[in-house]
Amino acid sequence: MSDLKRTSLYDLHVELGAKMVPFAGYSMPVQYKAGVMKEHLHCRAQAGLFDVSHMGQVILRDGELPDVALALETLVPQGLVELKSGRQRYAFFTNDQGGILDDLMVANRGDHLFLVVNAACKEADIAHLRANLTHCHIEEITDRALLALQGPAAEAALAKIAPGVVTMKFMDVQTLYSDYGELWISRSGYTGEDGFEISVEAAQAEGFARALLADDTVAPIGLGARDSLRLEAGLCLYGNDIDTTTTPVEGALTWGIQKARKADGAREGGFPGADRILAELADGPTRLRVGLRPEGRAPMREGTLLYAAAEGGAPIGAVTSGAFGPSIEGPMSMGYVPVDMSAEGTTIYGEVRGKRLPATITAMPFRTATYKR
């Protein structure tokens, strides 16, 4: 643990009794004294505070915003020219084979784009941007922390510090001023709940976090509950559910590719792997990410092999994420299966401790999202 990086909130995590673990090169809280189950349910019922400062924050500038949006479109399949000021969009970097290098959030903050990328990929992502967008100014933000406040009580708790958040809708971005300096806020998150992600000056982060935690509805939440919350919401974890070997179409992420970048769109293709991705959009992929509800109480976790029948035959796929869902009171998984076995209601079998157990292919999210539309 001694060679791991620490976020601005490390001392606060220790003070709050967090169990610290290595994650993406950082020492991060996996859970606090309440434990994963209670943290998960608290976030669903009230509000949870997450430290996500290990993620990368990047500013992308050019002389004209449409120019920088067009430049970034050469690396992602998303339509960014149409992204209005004060709005954010989910995106993914693709490679020449159509695989996903990373998924990220892109916000139009008026005179620049603001990107939030995954912690484990941020060095590679920034190098990728600098190698390919040579005329753009690319600035990694290293003096700001990033916190997520999620749950039905999140708006009321944050409004005590930044009242302007009450007018924000899902995927809005705004800069608000507070006793803790300038806050860069998006109404988004990784739990399926209404909530916010807030970039705050590193020197102000602990004071800001303590102010939020002073609200009786807010509790600290670790990586353990963050994972079960995102899985209930049907959200991908990079490196598990999507990676360089999975295309956005295979990953059931076609909703994240705007019409302008698809066949016959205003700016069709022009991104890495476009030939394969556009072909899969037209003709369909051979495999697909699906939701699974195993029978019984035992989760089918990452790596569980999937079969078409209870006996015999070769594996048809594998689970990429799996856990027990506290809110749905049962196990849940996602994984990849052949398209001809991907229909909802199909029964397949996962091999758990040498036995094949049934699971039903199910629509995601496993629990309906509560974003403020």
Score class of each variant (00 low, 15 high):
102 D>A: 01
1 M>V: 14
330 G>P: 05
188 S>C: 08
284 G>A: 06
79 G>T: 00
160 K>E: 12
341 M>F: 00
146 L>A: 07
270 G>S: 11
235 L>K: 11
126 I>C: 08
94 T>S: 04
50 F>I: 14
208 F>W: 01
342 S>T: 01
311 E>P: 04
229 L>P: 09
122 K>Y: 00
141 I>K: 08
228 S>V: 15
351 E>Q: 14
244 T>A: 12
335 G>V: 14
80 L>C: 00
129 L>Y: 07
272 P>R: 04
231 L>M: 14
101 L>C: 06
292 L>N: 12
248 P>C: 09
34 A>I: 09
338 P>R: 10
66 P>E: 13
156 A>M: 09
109 R>G: 01
5 K>V: 07
316 I>V: 14
250 E>Q: 14
347 T>I: 15
181 G>A: 05
368 T>P: 10
9 L>H: 03
250 E>D: 12
280 E>F: 05
149 L>V: 02
88 Q>C: 13
59 I>V: 14
116 V>A: 10
342 S>M: 01
302 E>L: 15
233 A>R: 08
224 G>A: 13
163 P>V: 02
359 A>F: 03
373 R>G: 09
108 N>K: 01
326 P>T: 07
59 I>H: 10
216 D>I: 08
348 I>M: 07
102 D>N: 10
282 A>S: 04
117 V>T: 14
23 F>W: 15
116 V>D: 11
4 L>N: 02
287 R>L: 07
88 Q>A: 12
297 R>I: 13
173 V>E: 05
340 D>I: 05
281 L>P: 02
171 M>Q: 10
21 V>P: 03
195 G>K: 05
88 Q>H: 05
174 Q>G: 04
130 R>P: 06
182 E>D: 07
130 R>F: 10
301 R>I: 15
354 G>E: 07
43 C>F: 00
317 G>M: 13
165 V>Y: 00
348 I>V: 15
96 D>A: 13
354 G>Q: 11
86 G>N: 10
52 V>T: 09
268 E>N: 11
181 G>N: 02
212 L>C: 03
304 T>W: 12
41 L>E: 04
268 E>H: 10
150 Q>E: 13
270 G>W: 05
121 C>N: 03
13 H>E: 05
345 G>I: 07
341 M>N: 00
298 A>H: 12
314 A>I: 01
84 K>W: 03
73 E>Q: 06
128 H>K: 06
201 E>Q: 14
215 D>A: 13
226 R>T: 13
177 Y>K: 11
146 L>K: 06
253 L>M: 08
199 S>I: 02
156 A>I: 05
261 R>H: 03
256 G>R: 02
246 T>R: 03
360 T>P: 09
367 R>W: 09
240 N>K: 15
116 V>G: 02
137 H>S: 12
108 N>H: 11
48 G>T: 04
369 A>D: 04
76 V>E: 00
174 Q>M: 10
355 K>D: 12
90 Y>W: 02
224 G>Y: 05
334 M>G: 12
258 Q>P: 03
91 A>G: 01
147 L>Q: 09
240 N>T: 14
145 A>N: 07
251 G>M: 02
54 H>K: 07
